[in-house]
Design a protein around this nucleic acid. Structure first.
Lengths: 195, 195
DNA sequence: TTGTCCCGACCGAACATTCGGTTAATCTAT
DNA sequence: ATAGATTAACCGAATGTTCGGTCGGGACAA
């Protein structure tokens, strides 16, 4: 927690800038030159703070995965009927997505070209499987429709939630927008569009 | 329709190969070297068939957009109550997504780095707005719930459908898998997960 | 004066694209 | 039927550019 007088970058503050650029141009479409311009420091200075481009990616997706897996440890995801736990995880996932928007966005877009990307994809699959198990239990307890394959339903549910990163942009301070989005997600997911 | 005896590439057959690689590595992550290896011809030979890398992208997303906009001209998207037209478009969009999987996948992933990508994004927005209008009409006709914002609902609906490209892989010939996916999409979208 | 932070200059590798030229199938005129 | 002309398809080598990353040194706070 030592803070210098000099207004300077840390790996964390640099990360925030980098993630923005990664999301705008794509990871592969972003050069260190782009990053240096966005950060306002020279290309070589970036290497003072991080080992390289891939470390920035690793830190970013790591933070996103931390947020997602954290949900599963919360009480709401552990107690109660499966369908209630599923709704809790659904809502919280949407919340975390919006809270950590740029980091999760990046996570959801990795393609598997580097070791870091493959690691991220694997951990993400892990998370998906945990939720799929929840959905399966809810079906077994009779609270969810059994006429749709569990695996398929999980994927579509996540497809809907994850699509938030494609368009959600936080509004000015104190907005209730995020709540409305979470409600809409839960309503559509569990009760559908129909009247 | 002239066909040469010689087993050789045309811009179209080359496109099929290129789109596969683009989807696997990402457009920016794909070099002409990668393409040439996948196609089994030399890097320079590719330039005999197409102007360059970006033309391949343009042809690919163009084909995807053609398929999507084609839906809106079909009878099912023009006649009947708005909610029925919406369900028709929903189902057909899922079908086109699976039929033209690699092309639509590429379309849904463009980031806007080149002129071609920006053109694709704009046309895609156009399509989304056409469907949003449909959803709005269905709400006005009283067939869809009015307690969720139209714009938001459209985005979530598309989020669910479009997520198909993240995991759907066609099975062997004569499979009924695609139908099942379409049914699941329609059921979840309109009636939700709940029993 | 020491260590942190930063810079411009630079590097080898990889990039998209171009070029000069070869091969082989098809067309033309006899 | 076939020699010669034409052309589509292809290639290896080279173009200039951009890439991620390195290096030696300067500025500044402690």
């Amino acid at each position: 927690m030592t803070m210098s007088k000099r207004d300077t970058y840390t790996p964390e503050t640099l990360l925030a800038v980098a993630v923005e650029v990664f999301n705008e141009r794509g990871y592969d479409g972003t050069s260190m030159e782009h990053l240096s311009r966005a950060a306002g420091i020279s290309k070589s200075s970036i290497y003072h703070h991080v080992r390289g481009k891939e470390e920035l990616l690793h830190r970013a997706v790591g933070r996103a995965l931390e947020g997602l897996f954290g949900i599963l440890d919360e009480q709401g995801a552990r107690d109660g009927r499966a369908v209630e736990r599923l709704e809790y995880v659904t809502r919280r996932t949407a919340e975390v997505l919006m809270d950590e928007l740029p980091y999760v966005t990046l996570l959801l877009r990795v393609r598997g070209n580097t070791a870091t990307e493959r690691w991220a994809m694997e951990r993400r699959r892990e998370f998906d499987q945990r939720v799929a198990a929840l959905l399966k239990d809810a079906v077994a307890e009779g609270d969810l429709r059994a006429d749709v394959d569990v695996r398929l339903a999980t994927r579509l549910l996540f497809g809907m939630i994850n699509s938030l990163v494609e368009w959600y942009r936080p509004e000015g301070r104190g907005s209730t927008e995020a709540e409305q989005v979470v409600d809409a997600v839960a309503r559509l997911a569990f009760d559908g569009l129909r009247t």
